[in-house]
Each structure stands twice: as structure tokens, then as C-alpha cells.
Computed example of a mutant assay.
Amino acid sequence: MSERQQPWVAEPEQRGRILVLTDNPIARSIAVIASTVGRPVLVESADDGGPGLDPQEGDAVVLCDHDAPDAPSVLRSALASDAVYVAMMASRRRAEGLVEELVGEGYDVSRLHVPAGHDLGGRAPGEIALSVVAEIVAESYGRPGGPMSG
């Protein structure tokens, strides 16, 4: 008799950290969900980006508070780094001016996800966090996300 094949791997490939700016309910939910899928998470509670946000190759950076005083400079730092995913919680309209400014300064915004996450329709912190972590996982595997059927 042959062994049953499982649709999962016991030892997932190690991925970069998920770095989150500003401790709020969405950030805490990202930490819980991301740790469940085996991603190390650093939530920086200091609005100025603090000492902890130093994106390395393979990291994902998520700004959960576009109104944080240092959000623009943290975003610039993330886009200049080797982070594989950079996202900001903001509507397209609200982020439009900042994105135009970044482009004008010569930043490559092709990795910038605004608004962060997949369009799942959820509005609660955990639902928003789920959409963000799903997008990070999909990006890390080079997938667009979306239904597997169809």
C-alpha cells in the first residue's frame, strides 16, 4: 500500500519577516495570522518607524497607519530596500499625492500595494489583516491570488 500524499509540506520554505508600522488592531491581527502561516512578524509601535524597521531582502513592509508622522519616510526606506512587498493602508485617492511625489523623486512604486491586501470585502481588523497576509503569501509564491477553482 502506498502512502497518502498530503497537499501541504511539513517544513515550509523560510520567508522574510513581515514588518508592520504602528501598533493597532489591524497590525495585531496581521501578527496573529502571519505567525499562524509561519512568518516572523515585527510590529513597530513607534509612529516614527522606531529602530526596528530595517527592511532586508525578502521582507514585507506594511504601513498600517498612513497618518503616522514618519509614514512617508518609512515608505521611502522600504521602497529603496530589497523588501519584496511594500504596502500601505490607505485608499487609492488618499495615497495618490504621496505616490505621485514618490514617482517624482524617482522611486520605483511597482512593488507598492495601495490599498494593501486582496479585495475580500471585509472591514473588521481581522478580515483586513487576512487580506493583507493573503496578498503577502501570494506575492511570495509569484501568484496573483484569487479563487483556485474556475
Rank of each mutant, 00 (worst) to 15 (best):
V103E: 14
R39I: 06
V84C: 15
R111M: 01
V37D: 14
A27P: 11
G52M: 11
S73W: 13
A78I: 03
V84N: 08
L42Y: 10
L120K: 01
V86K: 00
A90N: 02
D59V: 07
L120Y: 14
V61R: 00
V62I: 07
L112F: 13
S45H: 14
H118E: 15
I26R: 00
V74M: 02
G52Q: 09
C64T: 08
G121L: 10
G126S: 12
D108M: 05
G122E: 15
V114R: 04
L102N: 08
V32F: 09
S73C: 12
A90I: 03
V41F: 08
G50L: 11
A90W: 06
L112A: 00
S35W: 04
D119W: 14
E101G: 06
S77C: 11
V114T: 13
L75H: 01
V84L: 14
M89A: 11
D47F: 13
E127V: 13
L53G: 03
P69S: 10
A124C: 09
S77D: 13
V84S: 12
R111A: 10
G58N: 10
D23L: 12
R93A: 15
P55Y: 00
L102C: 07
L42A: 12
E101M: 07
D59E: 00
R93N: 13
D119N: 13
L63S: 02
L112I: 07
A80E: 11
G97K: 09
T22K: 01
R94C: 13
L21Y: 09
Y85S: 00
E127Y: 13
H113A: 07
P72M: 02
R28F: 04
D65A: 10
E105N: 13
P55T: 04
V20T: 05
L98M: 11
Y107W: 09
A60R: 07
D70N: 15
D48Q: 04
P55E: 02
D82F: 09
S73T: 12
P115H: 07
Y85M: 01
L53Q: 04
A46W: 07
A60C: 10
L102A: 01
R94V: 04
G126A: 15
L112R: 02
H118A: 11
G106N: 05
I128T: 15
I33E: 04
A90T: 06
A34D: 06
G49I: 01
V43W: 02
N24W: 01
P69Y: 02
D108T: 13
A34I: 03
V99G: 02
P40N: 00
S73K: 11
A78P: 05
I30K: 05
E100D: 15
D82G: 03
D47R: 15
D108A: 08
L120D: 10
T22I: 02
M89G: 04
L42D: 11
G106C: 09
I26V: 09
L102P: 05
R93V: 05
D119V: 01
R76K: 08
D70S: 14
V99T: 08
D67V: 15
V32L: 12
G121F: 09
V74N: 00
A87S: 05
V74G: 06
H113R: 04
R28G: 12
Y85K: 02
A95Y: 08
D67G: 15
S29Y: 00
